[in-house]
Nucleic acid binder design. Structure first.
Lengths: 197, 197, 197, 197
DNA sequence: TTCTAAACGAGACGGTACGTCACGTCTTCTG
DNA sequence: CAGAAGACGTGACGTACCGTCTCGTTTAGAA
C-alpha cells in the first residue's frame, strides 16, 4: 500500500473532497500571503504552488476572498487572560495579539482579508460577522470586570471591546505593530481610568 | 474662418501639464469610485471616462495608488469644533465625519485608499503620513481640553485621537456608518469619563 | 437538458491546442493581409477578427513574423512544368506564378513576409531558408535540361533559378505583376539563348 | 552678439527652413538605420537623436517613408565602368555595389526603403520611380555593348538591367552580400554567353 | 526701426498596438 | 468521477510611438 505516493501526484479519492488537496491549497495560500503579501496572492499562484488544478480551487472556494478567509480561520486565535485587573487584561491581550500578528505572519493575512472586504461583498459580510464575534469575545474582559464591580454598569462591554480591536486594526493597517509596551499601557489606562482631570 | 471643428477635444497646451486633463481625470476617477467602488477602478476605465489617453494618466500618476490618494486629497476635510466640552467635541466630530463619508461618497474613496495601502508600498507610506497628520489634527481637541484642565495632564492627546479615528476607520471598513447617535455619545462618554466603577 | 447556450463560442478542448482556433487565426490573418495589407496587420486586429484572445495567438506564434510565415506556408505553391524546352518551362512558371500571386492574394502575403524579414531576425532566417528551398525547386528545371543536354554543363542550375526568382521578387516588390507575356518570353529567351551577338 | 550659440542649441533662423536642422535630422536618421536597423527607426528616435522637435520633422517630411527615401538619396551611387567587355562591366558593377552596400551601411538603408514600400503607397511610388531610373542607368552597359555589336540587337537593355538589379536586390533582402567573386563571374557569364549547350 | 510671420526646441495631448498577466470556464486524460 | 493539467476568451496592465497641438523663443524680411 501507499506505493504510488512516491511520485507525489495527488489525485481523486472518489466522488468526495480530497483533504490532502484542501490542505495543500490552504498551506500554499498562507505561505504566499505571508511571504509576498496580497499583491502576489492569485488563484493562479496558489494553484501552481499547491500543484493543484485551478478548477479544484474554484470547486471548493467560489472566490479569492472566501479562500482568504479560510486561510485566516486556520490561524490560532489569541486568548484573553483574567488577571482580575481589567487594564492588565487589555494590555496583555494587545501585547499578545501584536506579537502573534508579527511573528506568525497572520497579521499579513488579516490585513489582506480587510483589504479584500473593501471590494468583495462576500468577504465584507464574512468580515463583519467575524468582527462581531471578536467584539463579543473581547467584550468578555469587560463583562467579567463589570461582574466584579470593577467597571461601571452603564458602560457597554462590546463598545469597549470595539475600542480595543479598532486600535489593533488601526495599528495593523498602518504598519505600526512595533511593540511599545508603554504606549499600550497608556492606552489601557486611558480606556479604564478615564481622562478626567 | 477655420472654426475649430473638433470642438470638445482636449489637447496639449504646449510643453506643460494641461489642468483640464488633470481635472477631468480626477473627476472621472472619483466618480467611478463613488459609483462602482474599488473593483471597477482601473486606469483603463478612468481613461475612457475622462476621454484621456492612458499615457497621460501614467505621465502624472505613477501608479493606481497615487491616483487614488490624489482623489482622496481633493475631498473636503471635516472640521473639529470647540464647544468647551471634550465629549461633545468628539461626538460632533464623529457625527459629522460619518455623515460626510456617507453623503459625499468620500467614505468609499477612503476605504479604497486603505485597501490599496495593504498591497502598495507607496500608498502605505502615504496613508501612514496622512493618518499621522489626522492624529495631530484631532489631537487638538484633547490638547485644548488639557489646556483648560478638563483633561488630565498625563493623558496623551495623540493616542486619544488615535482611539477616535480608529473607531471611525473600523466602522467604515465594516460598513457600519449608520448614524446611531446614542452609540457615539456612549463612546465619547466612555472615552472621557473613564469606566471605573 | 442544459443545451449549450453560447452556441458559436470557441473554447478550450482541454489541455491541448484547439485546431479550430488555429484555423480561425490563420484565416483571419490571411484575410486581413489580402484585404488591407501589411499596415493593417496587427496581432490585435487578427485576434479581433478571429474572435480569439491575444494570449492564444502569442501562445502559439511568438511573433508577428512567425504568424506571417505560417500564413504564407498555407498557400499552394506553383508547380514547374516539363515541356522539354527550358525557355518554355521558365515562361510557363513565371506566368503561372504571377497569376497565382495576383489572383489569390498570396502575392500580398509574400511581400509582407519579405518586408517583415528586413526588421525581424527570425523572419529573415525563415525567409532565407524558404528562398534556398525555392532555388533548389526551380533549379530542377535547369537540372533536367542539363540532363538532356539542352543546357551547358558549366552553368549552375541554382544560380539560374535565382535569376528567375529574383526577377519575380523584383516585380512583386515594385508592383509590376501585370501580365505582359512578351516581356516574360523575352526574359526566358535572354536567359537561355544568351545575348551574344 | 552671437553669444548664445556657445550652448549649441539650434534654433529658428527666421521664417525659413534651417539647413542645420535638416542636416542633423538626416544624419541622425541615417545613423539609426545603419546602427540599429529599421525596427529602431522611429520619428521619435530620430527627433531625440537629432535634438530636433517632432513637428520640425513632420513639417518637412510628411511620413516616415519619405524621410527614409531622403536618407537613401543622400547615399553615393555606384558608377558603371566601361571596359569594352559587357561581362566584365557587370561583374565590376555588382562587386562594387555589394561592397558599397556592405561597407557604408547604405545596404541597410535600402533594405528599409524596400520594406517600407510594401506598406506605404508613397514610398512604393518613389521606389518604383527609383528602380526605373536604375534600370535605365544600368541598361547603359548593355546599350553600349549593343552599339559595339557585342550584344545582339533583339535583346532589351532595360530587361537585362533588371536581371542584374533583381539579383542584387535578392541578395540584399536575404542577407547574402558576402563577396564571392566566382559566383558573380558565373552570373555575368550566364547572362552574356547564354546557357545553350 | 519696429513688427510680423514662420521656423525652432520642447513636450503634452488623445490614441493604437504592443506583449504579459490573471481571471474564471472549459475539456481531456489519468488513476 | 475527482483531480491535474493547461488551453480558451476576456480584459487590464504599463510602455512605445504615432501624428497633432500649443508654448515661448529666435530671427529674417516687410512695413
Amino acid at each position: 500500500m501507499a506505493v504510488k505516493e512516491a511520485i507525489g501526484r495527488r489525485t481523486s479519492i472518489g466522488a468526495q473532497r480530497n483533504p490532502a488537496s484542501e490542505e495543500a491549497i490552504l498551506k500554499a495560500a498562507e505561505e504566499i500571503l505571508v511571504e509576498s503579501g496580497l499583491s502576489a496572492f492569485s488563484i493562479e499562484a496558489v494553484a501552481k504552488r499547491a500543484k493543484a488544478g485551478k478548477p479544484t480551487i474554484y470547486r471548493w472556494w467560489p472566490s479569492k476572498a472566501v479562500l482568504l478567509l479560510d486561510v485566516y480561520h486556520r490561524q490560532k486565535t489569541v486568548p484573553i487572560s483574567d488577571t482580575g485587573n481589567v487594564a492588565e487584561d487589555i494590555f496583555l491581550f494587545l501585547t499578545a495579539l501584536f506579537q502573534h500578528w508579527r511573528q506568525t505572519g497572520s497579521g499579513a493575512i488579516f490585513r489582506s482579508v480587510i483589504a479584500e472586504a473593501q471590494s468583495d461583498a462576500a468577504a465584507a459580510e464574512a468580515l463583519a460577522a467575524y468582527a462581531a464575534g471578536r467584539r463579543k469575545y473581547i467584550g468578555e474582559i469587560f463583562r467579567r470586570a463589570q461582574a466584579r464591580k470593577e467597571v461601571a454598569g452603564w458602560a457597554d462591554p462590546e463598545l469597549l471591546a470595539e475600542m480595543v480591536s479598532s486600535l489593533a486594526w488601526n495599528r495593523l493597517l498602518t504598519n505600526r505593530l512595533d511593540p511599545d509596551p508603554e504606549d499600550l499601557r497608556l492606552f489601557a489606562r486611558q480606556l479604564t481610568e478615564g481622562i478626567r482631570a
